[in-house]
Nucleic acid binder design. Sequence first.
DNA 1: GCTACTGGTGATACGTAGTATCAATATATG
DNA 2: CATATATTGATACTACGTATCACCAGTAGC
Lengths: 140, 140
Amino acid sequence: MMATDSLDARVDEILKSLGRRTTAPRRQVARLLASKRGAFSAESINAELPEVGRATVYRTIRLLAEAGVLCKALLPDGSPRYSIDHSWHHHHLICSSCETVEEFRSSELERLLGELSDEIPGQVLGHQVDFYLTCPNCLQ
Amino acid sequence: MMATDSLDARVDEILKSLGRRTTAPRRQVARLLASKRGAFSAESINAELPEVGRATVYRTIRLLAEAGVLCKALLPDGSPRYSIDHSWHHHHLICSSCETVEEFRSSELERLLGELSDEIPGQVLGHQVDFYLTCPNCLQ
DNA sequence: GCTACTGGTGATACGTAGTATCAATATATG
DNA sequence: CATATATTGATACTACGTATCACCAGTAGC
């Protein structure tokens, strides 16, 4: 599968650039992630990979999130969901019903957030904007 | 203390309006919360009230959060912090260093978020905006 | 003020999310 | 191929929160 192969290569590259080793467990996790559409919990990945240790699953997810391959969104209650990061900077549309997470971009929003960051005392490191909604699907 | 007394009264009122009972443990939790400045974790409240059960501490915090007395902010890693809710609708300035949570309001931001909500497919229920920063204090 | 009804409490157990430890193992490199 | 070391996975631990359930205490009605 094209997408899987390219993510494999991307993961190899990232690991190399970080001086990390390319191991079988990391490949297994990366391949499973690549097959996922939408958002997922770390625990669900762990459940689908009984042959990979839990700690390794979590470590790999963290590694890929820090490398920008995955991004982390928080459901309204704070529980994290991960998804493949398709675009550089974006926010999230989170369905409170089916927990689907979609990416969302708005240059106008970005501009305003930038302006506000300049006004806020201290050094702004980043921001998070999430919309909680009932998605068209869940509205029937 | 004035602030404590008024929160006591407010909590009594809220409990009454919800048809809930005014109990000693709920008062203890509410009093401790009133004495807090800034944000705190549920667990820290639990630790400071050994005579109140953990379940009751969490139940009371949830009750007060749902009633609008407390508001919940999420640190960058998703761990929740609670603080007395001083103003109706606001966002958060979260110091990544000292974990201080401050309230933040911007009518311009609110207006834009409202506009965007209209454009987003599905029924938008709410949004969350957080700025992560190093606060002036932590910048020395 | 007493009593009964029922909501609240707290001990315990459970579930999710994630990190720390550490002996055993696999990888990249000379 | 040998070896230094990054990585693994079992286990244990922390934070955060909910479910259960026997017992207790508010509150409404008399």
